[in-house]
């Protein structure tokens, strides 16, 4: 384990912030005050944070419809995110994007995406920019298990290999695409093997274990930075909520999620590991979690008090100039 205590605090802070954020969004959404629909990331925190911990400002990530965790892992502002989810003028996207299209290009987060699989070609584009302008950056594309059945993702993987771009694909396998199991929908059943067939190394890892994800990504990112082309990981970890919030989830077992939370929760695994190694203590971790909760509480209060966009915002930002 080469991570410093500060790194571990940073990682834990990001993971618990995602958890607090998502658990709270679930509650807020139930009140009916949050428009549209939300896809929650709780349960998969170790993947986003493991993948993003070593990234910096020149690195770009591309996300999915389940994008809150990726935003937080890449350092997006929590309050800006919450305002956006509430459709407020001060949100990250001025209340024009919402949960499914949340983005912050200033932070290298080039967008959640409402179209399954569409983000993969886009992140290849970010890789092309990095290579062409020699920014030294890498492009990380999060791709869900459902999206791996999309042609766009196949094309993107092939193109990244053909052009040897600094791209890392993170295939998030949470076992279910919408309401249909991976066992059914992925013909070969093996996402990593299928991706590897495009001509890049792809490791299959336990997405509930931050340390495993982080270590696998370290190799991928280094490979990309060295100009050795794309690679990927398939990280497995369940989601704790439905496809969308409010989804009855009658496609999975009654106590399935409870079991995941009790037995293999990524936060618990992380806590156990750092305490066993005497790197961080319970006090440390509890304090971080309390801070995260306070941060989310503040964000919700601010979002509820914030004004919505007005009529003058309807027709702005369609074009740069027209």
């Amino acid at each position: 384990m080469q991570l410093s205590r500060d790194d571990l605090r940073t990682a834990y802070r990001a993971m618990v912030t995602i958890r607090e954020f998502e658990e709270r969004v679930a509650v807020e959404f139930e009140t009916g005050d949050m428009p549209g629909f939300v896809h929650l990331y709780a349960g998969e925190e170790a993947i986003a944070v493991g993948a993003c911990l070593d990234l910096d400002e020149k690195d770009i990530i591309g996300s999915t419809h389940r994008g809150h965790g990726h935003c937080i892992a890449k350092g997006c502002d929590i309050q800006g995110m919450m305002l956006e989810l509430f459709g407020r003028k001060g949100g990250l996207c001025g209340g024009k994007g919402g949960s499914m299209h949340i983005a912050d290009l200033d932070r290298g987060m080039m967008g959640a995406n409402g179209i399954v699989g569409a983000g993969a070609p886009l992140i290849v584009g970010a890789g092309l920019t990095a290579k062409t302008l020699k920014t030294g950056g890498v492009a990380i594309g999060f791709v869900g298990d459902g999206a791996t059945n999309q042609g766009a993702v196949f094309e993107a993987m092939n193109l990244a290999v053909v052009l040897a771009l600094p791209v890392v694909f993170v295939f998030e396998n949470n076992y279910i695409g919408e309401a249909t199991g991976v066992d059914y929908a992925v013909g070969s059943g093996d996402i990593a093997a299928r991706a590897a067939a495009f001509g890049m190394p792809v490791d299959k890892v336990d997405g509930r274990d931050f340390f495993v994800v982080h270590e696998a990504m370290r190799g991928c990112i280094e490979r990309a930075r060295n100009g050795d082309g794309p690679s990927g990981i398939e990280a497995l970890s369940p989601r704790y909520y439905g496809h969308f919030q409010g989804d009855p989830q009658n496609y999975r077992g009654a106590d399935e999620v409870e079991r995941y939370r009790a037995e293999h929760d990524c936060l618990k695994i992380f806590r156990q590991r750092v305490i066993d190694a005497k790197l961080l203590g319970d006090d440390d971790l509890d304090a971080i979690r309390a801070e995260a909760k306070a941060l989310v509480d503040g964000a919700v209060a601010a979002a509820r008090a914030a004004p919505p966009p007005g009529p003058s915002d309807l027709m702005t930002d369609i074009y740069v100039n027209y």
Binding site: L105, L122, G125, E155
Partner: peptide, 20 residues
């Protein structure tokens, strides 16, 4: 590029949004 119109357009759009 390969004959991959979706990837061509996506890569172009993604690279445009990030600085090309």
């Amino acid at each position: 590029t390969p004959i991959s119109e979706t990837a061509i357009m996506g890569m172009a759009a993604g690279s445009a949004a990030t600085g090309l």
